[in-house]
Nucleic acid binder design. Structure first.
Lengths: 219, 219
DNA sequence: ACATAAAAGGAACAAGTATTCCGTTTATGT
DNA sequence: ACATAAACGGAATACTTGTTCCTTTTATGT
C-alpha cells in the first residue's frame, strides 16, 4: 500500500468528558475567541473542501494559526467541525432547489439541480465526503436543514416525474445513491481533475434518468 | 464519528526487510506449510469478500486458525495477500469476457459483461475494493492478467460501439469509472443488500450508455 | 528416535492521528 | 494597573492496526 492517503477513522470511541471542554456558545464570547472561531471555520472550510474529511485536525490548526486545543475548545469533535462547515453548503443548495420548485419546466428544473449538486461535489471534497458518510447531518439540532434539503429534492423529482421528464420507477433514495456514486466516481483514477470525463458520466446518468415513454428498445 | 468501520491505511511505509521474511515459494514447501497456506487463502477469500480490504489481518489469522506471523511468512504484506485472492476473480471475469467476444450481438455481449462485473461486485466486497484502489493488480508479475482484463473489456466496448449499441463518446476509462462508481453506490446507506435499488441504478446506467442514434431529445 | 531446518505464533514495535489535560497567556472590567 | 476568568497551545495520551522479531514447535530424512 504505497498510497499516502490520510485516515478516515480512529476518532476516539467515547470522549471522556464533553461537558464544558469547549465553549458553550450561547451567551458571551471574548473578542479574540470570536476571531479565532472564525479563523478556524474559514481554515476548515478551505482545507476540508480541498482535502476532504480525512486531513488531520492539526493541519486545520496550522492553517488557522491556532493550536489544536483551541479547535477543541470551539468544537467538541472533528465531526462537529466538519458539520459546522458543511451546513452552509446544504443551506445554499437547498435554497437553490426551492427557487427551482416553481420553474415552468419541471424536467429542466430537476436536471438543473441534479447538475448543480454534482458540480458542487466535483470541486468540493467536503461535500463529497458529507455525501459519502450517509449522514449529511447528524446533529439533532440541525436535522431541519437535512429535511429541508431532502424534501426540496423530493419535490423536484416528483414534479419531473409527473411531467414525464424522469422515469417513474425511482425514488429520492435512488437519486441520493446515484448522486453519491457519481460524486465518488472520480475520486480514484489519478487525475480527479478530468472534467470532461466527469461531464460524460453525468450525461450518461441524465440520459438514463429520462423517461422512456413508450418506445423502449426490447432487451 | 460513531461508525465502527475498520481502517484503510496505515500499512508501514517501508518494510525493513522483505528478503526472506516469507516463504520463497519456488522450490519445496513443507506439508503443514502448504496446508496452512491454503487455509490462509481460503480464509482471506471469505473474509475479504465479506468485509473488504479493511479488516485487520488478525481476523484472517483467526479465521484461518493460524498466527499472524504465519500469514506474513507466506505473504510479504497484507496487500500481497489481497492480490493473491483477487487475481482469481479477475481471471474468471476475463475468461467470461473473452467468451463473449464472438457473440453475434455485440450490444448484448457488452451489456452482459457490464452486468456480470456489477453483480460480482454487489456480492463481493473484495472485488469492489480492488476496483476502488485503481490498481486492480500492482505486482509486475501479474501485470498480464490486468492487461488481459482491460483489453477484453475494450474489445467488447469497441464492437458494441461499432454496432451502434453504445454511445460513441466514451472510452474504456469512462467505463471503468462508471463501473467503479456503481459498485460503490450501495456501500453507504444502511442496507447494502437492497438489490432492487441496485438493479434500478444499473438500469439507469445501461439506458444512459445506449446509443441515441439520431432522435436526441433537445436539451 | 534424532538432529535440524522449516514453520508457527504472538508479543512487541512502529506509526498515524483524534482527543484530553493542564500550565501559560490574555482580554476585560474595575 | 490589577485581578481573574476566559482562552490558548501543544505535549501527552489513547487506541488502532500493519509488520517485525525471536522463541517454541514440528515435519522430515537418516
Amino acid at each position: 500500500m504505497t498510497e499516502k492517503e490520510h485516515s478516515f477513522n480512529q476518532m476516539a470511541d467515547s470522549p471522556r468528558s464533553n461537558e464544558d471542554n469547549f465553549v458553550n456558545h450561547s451567551k458571551p464570547l471574548r473578542a479574540d475567541a470570536k476571531q479565532n472561531r472564525e479563523q478556524i471555520l474559514k481554515a476548515a472550510q478551505k482545507i476540508f473542501a480541498e482535502k476532504g474529511l480525512s486531513i488531520p485536525i492539526s493541519e486545520i490548526a496550522n492553517q488557522a494559526g491556532v493550536g489544536i486545543g483551541t479547535i477543541y475548545r470551539h468544537f467538541p469533535t472533528k465531526e462537529a467541525l466538519f458539520e459546522a462547515v458543511n451546513i452552509n453548503y446544504k443551506q445554499r443548495l437547498t435554497s437553490e432547489a426551492k427557487s427551482l420548485m416553481n420553474h415552468v419546466d419541471p424536467g429542466k428544473a430537476f436536471f438543473d439541480l441534479f447538475s448543480r449538486v454534482l458540480d458542487e461535489g466535483f470541486t468540493n471534497r467536503a461535500w463529497k465526503d458529507a455525501f459519502k458518510r450517509g449522514t449529511l447531518i447528524s446533529e439533532t439540532a440541525n436535522l431541519g436543514v437535512l429535511q429541508d434539503f431532502q424534501s426540496a429534492i423530493a419535490n423536484l423529482l416528483t414534479r419531473a416525474q409527473q411531467a414525464k421528464a424522469v422515469r417513474e420507477d425511482i425514488d429520492v433514495q435512488d437519486l441520493n445513491t446515484l448522486l453519491f456514486s457519481l460524486l465518488l466516481a472520480l475520486e480514484q483514477q489519478g487525475d480527479a481533475s478530468d472534467i470532461d470525463r466527469f461531464h460524460r458520466l453525468v450525461s450518461i446518468a441524465i440520459d438514463g434518468l429520462r423517461c422512456k415513454d413508450a418506445f423502449n428498445k426490447s432487451k
